[in-house]
Write a protein that binds this DNA or RNA. Structure first.
Length: 186
DNA sequence: ACGAGGATGCTCT
DNA sequence: GAGCATCCTCGTC
């Protein structure tokens, strides 16, 4: 099976199954002629109509249309009027389930990421920071992580242990343990 | 190390 | 007009 077919197959699963399996995988962007790449260390699952915290809880709107696309569609939205955040859509087309990418560690093009971020530390350890480091903006909303400028690729190293915790920065359904983080062994 | 507060603009009610 | 799936700075410990 090719890498792309493997990733496509993974993303077709249920969001709660897919989300933890994204930990350790890579996200690579080719934007403005520059390649940057991270390994994912933090994600959160959002389960559409079954999830009051989801942007799609109340159905389709002008903003969240990308969430209703096929698995692998990128959903990019503006957060707090300032930052861009990105999700990867999972499950069958028309089901607005998605995984919010919240953090990663630089693998390739770290100098580019540092320049985009304007600082050397905390380059990609937050959803807004991750998108900024990778150069992802609203124009990328609706593109596919299978063949677009923002691509999901298999992991490069053993992922380590994945732990589930409650999601960050939400007020509705805040008790669900749908945040998944990489725990690095000592 | 940690917490409070402000910036900022779009989306949906 | 309220409410954000955030980040940064500056204060305190």
């Amino acid at each position: 099976m090719s890498d792309t077919a493997g990733v496509q197959s993974l993303l077709a699963g249920h969001v709660l199954d897919v989300a933890p399996r994204l930990i350790g995988m890579r996200v690579r962007t080719e934007i403005d002629g520059l390649r940057t790449e991270v390994m994912l260390t933090e994600v959160e699952a959002y389960a559409g109509a079954q999830d009051p915290a989801s942007h799609a809880y109340r159905g389709r709107t002008a903003r969240n249309g990308a969430m209703f696309g096929p698995p692998g569609t990128l959903y990019v939205y503006r957060s707090y009027g300032i930052h861009w955040c990105m999700n990867i859509v999972t499950g069958e087309r028309g089901l607005p389930h998605a995984v919010l990418l919240r953090g990663g560690v630089p693998i390739t093009g770290e100098d580019t990421m540092v320049r985009r971020r304007g600082r050397r530390d905390h380059v990609a350890d937050g959803p807004g920071k991750l998108t900024q480091a990778l150069g992802v903006v609203g124009d990328h909303d609706g593109t596919s992580v299978l063949d677009g400028p923002v691509r999901l690729l298999p992991g490069v190293a053993p992922a380590g242990d994945v732990t589930a915790t409650t999601r960050v920065g939400i007020t509705k359904a805040a008790d669900r343990p749908w945040r998944f983080v990489l725990v690095v062994a000592e």
